[in-house]
Amino acid sequence: MGRPVLKMIIEVDTRWNSTFNMLERLYQLREPVGAALASLKTDITPPTALEYEAVRDALDVLGPFRQATVELSGEKRVSASKVKSSLFMLNHAVTSKLEGLNSNLTKQLGDSLVRRVREQAVHLESISVMTMPTLLDPRFKKLGFLSQGKLQEAVSRLKSECATVIRSSGLQSASTNTPPAQLPASSEAGQSTNNSK
């Protein structure tokens, strides 16, 4: 059909993005696939226009997840701040796509994904180890939080920890700046007479 020769992609159970790649290739080659299935003697029924529309919508909903997967897996060390902010961005991206979906099946998929992302984000917002890096990362700061309540908790916890560090460093510096205690005058006189002998 005058197109580049591309092979179909088969999904691998252990890699979710292989399912995305399979659907993407199927949608990309829908016309050649339809022509091939029509000319071959096979029991396989070609996908309908509604099914292709559902595939297109599913790719649209899953696209942000693929981008996040590529982004996070492409780094040797993923910072904790990027995990929460990725969930926040996934929530925003998928929520904004839900209104434009035509297929009920993909609307259910999108709703389910948004619910799971929010559950994970709320869970991570309760863990100090995950909230502090997000709050301290200059790229994200307060933008990486879904809940304003959890944001305020994280800010209060950070202020409290900073105050504790400042107090403890103030006590240490005060103890190192204190001059050594002076000896009483009688002992100084005794030392000077001992030194003169």
Rank of each mutant, 00 (worst) to 15 (best):
T19Y: 13
T48S: 15
S186P: 00
K142G: 03
T193L: 10
A93H: 13
K41D: 14
I127L: 15
E99W: 00
T106G: 02
E75R: 12
A49L: 12
L50D: 15
V12W: 00
Q120F: 02
S85D: 09
T14A: 08
S160K: 12
L101R: 03
R30E: 09
F145L: 02
D111V: 01
V122T: 14
A35Y: 02
E99T: 06
L183R: 13
S96Q: 13
E188Y: 07
P32V: 02
I9R: 06
R167C: 06
E161Y: 04
K76P: 00
L146W: 07
K82V: 07
D111I: 02
A174S: 15
L113P: 01
S103G: 11
V55L: 07
H123P: 00
K197C: 14
G34I: 04
L37W: 10
F145Y: 09
A174L: 15
A54G: 10
T134R: 01
R56M: 09
G100K: 11
R15W: 08
S196R: 13
N102F: 00
H123Y: 11
K76N: 11
V117Y: 01
D60C: 13
Q28T: 12
L6I: 08
Y27W: 12
V78N: 08
P4M: 11
L59H: 07
H123Q: 10
V129P: 00
K76Y: 07
K142V: 12
L6V: 12
S196P: 03
S173C: 15
T164I: 03
L183K: 11
P180A: 14
